[in-house]
Each structure stands twice: as structure tokens, then as C-alpha cells.
């Protein structure tokens, strides 16, 4: 679900002139809601063998919410067509953002999601912080020292003071095994 909404984020920007964002938003949400109601609910919510009352069905609330979203998205779509919202200007800072900046942010996210256990809390923290500092084009070397100190100190605080076991990193452990 998240994916299609992401794509939409880009779509609305470019179509801002001809169609209005509310109609598109309503359209997309109604398609998603319909997909949810007629595909996801029947296939991914089991109905128990024995049920005392239809109100007790595991499908009741998801369907209620699904229909709510469907109805309101259609309303939003129609509302947008009948009474287009005033165009708001895009923030000047949102234009002409270097693609590298955005890619580095995504890379930092990927480091955390995929390599958190492998690199450990300190390792991935340092790497992600460096990537994000690079994204902002920081030149000061002291700042990069900060990117090493902070994750290390915070991780150790989490582990020893708060007793929260953050991963030490399986990569380092296997390296030391050689």
C-alpha cells in the first residue's frame, strides 16, 4: 500500500495544473479501498468455523473501515471535481533539490533497515550519520567526528545505563571468528 501512495506523491506534483490533487487523492484511495475490500479482506481474513453473531466477525471492523474510506474517497474525488481547491504554491525550497541528496537519505534508510543487525547499532549509526551529513554537504571534519562519537556514546548508554540490548553487529563477530 505504501508503495502506490509514494508513486502518487510524485504524480500529484506534475498534474497539479490540469487535475486537482483532491480528485486524484480521492481516486487513488477509492481504488485502494476497493482493492482492500474485495481482494485483501476475503483472502487474508479467515472466517472462523463457528461464529455466534455476524457482529463478532473478524471481518466486521476492517470492512467497516474499508467502506468508510471508500465512501469518503469518492466524496473527496467528487468534491474536488465540483469545487477544485485553491492552488497552493510549492515551497521554493522543495524545487531543484539535488537528486544525490535524496539518494543519500534513502541509502541511510536502507542501512538501518537491512544492515542494522549485521553492522550493529554503532556501525549502522555511524554510517547512516555520515551519509546524511554528506547529503547536507557538510565539509567540517569535526562534524564527522561527531558522527562517530554520537552513535557510540548513545549505544553504550542504551546498553549499560538503560539496559536495552542493541545489536553489537554480527559482521564484526564473524570477522573476529576467522
Amino acid at each position: 500500500m505504501e508503495k502506490s501512495e509514494l508513486q502518487f506523491g510524485a504524480a500529484s506534483e506534475s498534474h497539479c495544473g490540469r487535475c486537482n490533487p483532491n480528485s486524484i487523492l480521492g481516486g487513488i484511495f477509492s481504488v485502494l479501498a476497493a482493492g482492500f475490500l474485495f481482494y485483501v479482506v476475503p483472502t487474508h481474513i479467515e472466517i472462523p468455523a463457528h461464529m455466534q453473531h455476524p457482529l463478532l466477525s473478524p471481518r466486521f471492523l476492517p470492512q467497516l473501515a474499508g467502506w468508510l474510506v471508500l465512501a469518503l474517497s469518492i466524496l473527496l474525488m467528487i468534491d474536488g471535481l465540483v469545487k477544485p481547491p485553491k492552488r497552493t504554491e510549492t515551497d521554493e525550497f522543495r524545487r531543484g533539490v539535488p537528486i544525490v541528496r535524496q539518494l543519500l537519505m534513502v541509502a541511510a534508510g536502507v542501512v538501518y533497515v537491512l544492515f542494522f543487525e549485521q553492522l550493529g547499532a554503532i556501525g549502522s549509526g555511524v554510517l547512516a550519520c555520515v551519509l546524511l551529513f554528506l547529503a547536507s554537504g557538510l565539509r567540517n571534519l569535526w562534524v564527522y567526528a561527531l558522527a562517530i562519537v554520537f552513535p557510540a556514546v548513545v549505544t553504550l548508554l542504551f546498553i549499560y545505563v538503560l539496559n536495552v540490548p542493541l545489536p553489537p553487529g554480527t559482521l564484526w563477530e564473524s570477522l573476529s571468528l576467522i
Partner: peptide, 28 residues
């Protein structure tokens, strides 16, 4: 309208997990 749509989505996300009464899987 948008707020209510968001609330509906929140409700849908909240129903993920084992069903509290029957123990069946929901959207897992």
C-alpha cells in the same frame, strides 16, 4: 473528509494481527 479517511486507514492498520476472539489471522 481527509481526516476521516486517515482514521479509517488507522483502524485498518490496527486490525492487523491475531483475532482477539477467534485467534484467526487477520491481514498478517
Amino acid at each position: 473528509v481527509k481526516g476521516l479517511i486517515a482514521a479509517g486507514l488507522g483502524i485498518i492498520v490496527s486490525t492487523i494481527g491475531l483475532d482477539a476472539v477467534y485467534g484467526t489471522q487477520r491481514l498478517t
